[in-house]
């Protein structure tokens, strides 16, 4: 049985099912209760579970994240909503020094089963402070898992897995994907958090991407296929830790790789993926790995500049063709 849902509905269904399944799961953040969350992900959950389990807090990102950590250490499974993940930089200390490390500094005596989720990425003219790609900043924090969903189907299955996980998980939803619609199973399903997904099998080149850029890549792939090429597409899903096995298997088959990301180039996810493939599959490569990233500038507000800052499908087509000709 299938039903067609927007991504925000798929996410809501995931939280709803997990709250019904486990009384310890609760949602907290700004405007998650009566307002239903800025992107409707928690809409109406408060009527079903009450204000105590769908908790509106005062605005202080570092402190509501800290509160969630304390609750997690005392038996609950909090799901924190960041109204915009960019603002969670205000919670950097609680996420990095505490959520990421308390399991370690306590010698494994306290677990922090915590999900921090919300909209990230570059939206439509939201400017620099609303367009941070926080995965780049947080990937260095030990103890954190970072997961990025890209479709309603994986959004639901991954969020459920993240809530069940016993570690702190930073769960990235893309601000421009909430209204993406897809038919997904009505029956319960959970997806593995740590596995990359081969979205399209191919043989000529491996295109590695995640989150919204998957959709840019798939547009480019249509053109590449029309021109007789057969690329393999991998959705990373897990940005930390990276599923190296799937990447190496693919590169061993295609011998060429290109990474497409929304991160800024310096210190982005692609930088890490490149380094890992070079370290573990250098002999399999027939050409240097290419990466297409956003420009190293704060995301500009002006729509033309903003689009120019981002990787576009035509640039992906061009880069893949160049790589194939080497």
């Amino acid at each position: 049985m299938l039903h067609k849902l927007f991504m925000y509905e798929a996410l809501r269904e995931a939280i709803d099912e997990e709250m019904a399944r486990d009384k310890r799961v609760f949602v907290l953040g700004e405007d998650v209760g009566h307002y239903g969350g800025s992107y409707k992900v928690t809409k109406q959950l408060h009527t079903k579970y009450g204000d105590l389990r769908v908790l509106d807090t005062p605005i202080a990102e570092n402190s509501f994240t800290g509160m969630a950590i304390g609750a997690a250490m005392t038996g609950l499974k909090p799901v924190v909503e960041g109204m915009n993940l960019s603002f969670l930089l205000l919670a950097f200390n609680q996420i990095s020094n505490n959520a990421g490390m308390l399991h370690y500094t306590s010698g494994g005596n306290w677990s922090i089963p915590l999900v921090i989720r919300g909209p990230g990425g570059i939206g439509k003219q939201l400017s620099a402070e609303h367009s941070q790609r926080i995965e780049a900043y947080f990937q260095a924090v030990p103890g954190l898992k970072i997961v990025a969903c890209s479709t309603p189907y994986n959004a639901k299955g991954l969020l459920k897995a993240a809530i069940r996980d016993n570690n702190p998980v930073l769960f990235l939803e893309h601000v421009l994907l909430y209204n993406l619609k897809q038919e997904i199973p009505k029956q319960e399903y959970v997806l593995p958090l740590d596995k990359a997904q081969v979205v399209r099998e191919g043989s000529d080149v491996t295109i590695i991407t995640y989150s919204r850029m998957l959709h840019h890549v798939m547009q480019a792939v249509k053109q590449l296929v029309a021109q007789g090429m057969n690329p393999e597409v991998i959705d990373l899903i897990s940005l930390k830790p990276i599923d190296l096995e799937t990447l190496v298997t693919s590169v061993s088959k295609t011998h060429k790789a290109i990474i497409v990301e929304e991160c800024m180039q310096t210190g982005g996810i692609a930088a890490e993926v490149m380094a890992q493939i070079y370290s573990h599959a250098f002999d399999e490569l027939d050409a240097p790995i290419r990466r297409l990233s956003s420009k190293d500038v704060p995301t500009p507000y002006n729509g033309y500049l903003e689009q120019a800052c981002l990787v576009q499908p035509t640039q992906i087509v061009e880069a893949v063709k160049t790589l194939m000709s080497t």
Binding site: N62, S63, T65, G70, A71, T74, S106
Partner: peptide, 25 residues
């Protein structure tokens, strides 16, 4: 007795979250 963090005052919101969990229990 929860493991101490060096960064100052981070335990204060933790205590609030723990108290919240205790209240629900």
């Amino acid at each position: 007795f929860h493991t101490i963090s060096s960064t100052l005052a981070t335990q204060i919101p933790h205590a609030v979250g723990a108290a919240y969990a205790l209240k629900l229990d």
